[in-house]
Design a protein around this nucleic acid. Sequence first.
DNA 1: CTTCCACAGGAACCAGCGGACC
DNA 2: GGTCCGCTGGTTCCTGTGGAAG
Length: 393
Amino acid sequence: MPSFGDFTGPSRIYRDRDVLSPHFIPDTLHFREHQIRELMSILAPALQGRKARNLMIYGKTGTGKTCSVKHVARKFEEERQNARITYINCRMYNKPYRILSKAIKALTNGLDKQGYGLPFYYEKMLEWCGEGRQLILVLDEIDMAKNIDELIYTLTRANDELERGGVSLVGISNRLTFKEGLDPRSKSSLYEREMVFPPYTAPQLQKILQQRVELAFNKDAITPGAINLASAYTAQESGDARYALKLIARAAEYAEEKGLGRITDAEVKGAREIVETDLVKEAVDKLPEHHQLVLYAVARLTLSGSKYARFEEGKDGYLFSGEVYEDYSELCSKLRKSAKTARSYRSYLTDLEMLGLVTTVESGKGIRGHTKLIKLGHTPQETISMMRHKFGE
DNA sequence: CTTCCACAGGAACCAGCGGACC
DNA sequence: GGTCCGCTGGTTCCTGTGGAAG
């Protein structure tokens, strides 16, 4: 019989699990020295009591944006006299009111009572800065926040009003299109400086993984080949360092389950599939119901084959937009739900495509005039099995 | 060449809802 | 605790597109 001791004893592989977590910030960040220098030079004036320029940072997920900023913030905090950096994630704090109240609460501890209005926090902020202090607001995932124009306007006004001290903004986004939705005035104010974080290349990922692995694992718990493989997979996928870390963490789990003391190519290969389905599953689970239904319809039609397949050549496995809508409506009535209009359905499709769950092409030659051809991004069996418990037959 | 088909996707509008404000 | 406001997700309406049919 197994005992719990088998599962709770010291790991043969891990020395420190936290190192592979996406929140871990290493002491040295490889291949971001340049960006870190630039960041520091932009923020440095605040340490001398002058207002720092506003800054906008771009880069895909897992390119070290947040990590670099936090790294710099840590150094900054060591030297601060009359300046503070406050980090806020806009996914959680997604409105001017919430952002400002969060920031002020961090500044003046012991103000966690609820119920103050926006003007109150604004005054508090002026008060704090008015004593000659510099505040730097880091807004991560700034594209998730609403009314960002209003917030920027408020802060610009605050700077005008202040004789001493000031507020600066650092925005972080992974969507380049974020810029377009902004009011021209707040655009020019936020974009005083701009930085772009490129994706990591395979050799870079390799070095980064090497560094983390040395901290996280026991000596020789992973083969160099396994690291190379993980970097190569990640680089051809997206260059997302988080993906690489996830891959390694999964491979480690895999090796532990098999009772191995060492991670090799085989575990990384195995982990890749798991991570992939993990990610898809995560995305699918978070989807609103009707998005899921549309995806489900696409999946089951892919299995049964397109009714109009005979019309097409070359475009293998694509479905027509119309038949997917039909099937979706049918699915809805079977589940006693009312189907949304065709117009809504079309915007669901666009959403699904943006998430990479389906791919579409405009119909070209000879097929039914102007329509969209749809193809599933992953295997239908996999997709269906994820949703079968909800809609399945 | 005109009309039709089957859809794409923008714009305006509307209902419901949660939060701010008094 | 009621009122107002703005956002969200959806619908309706509309114009655009490009091959097929007449």
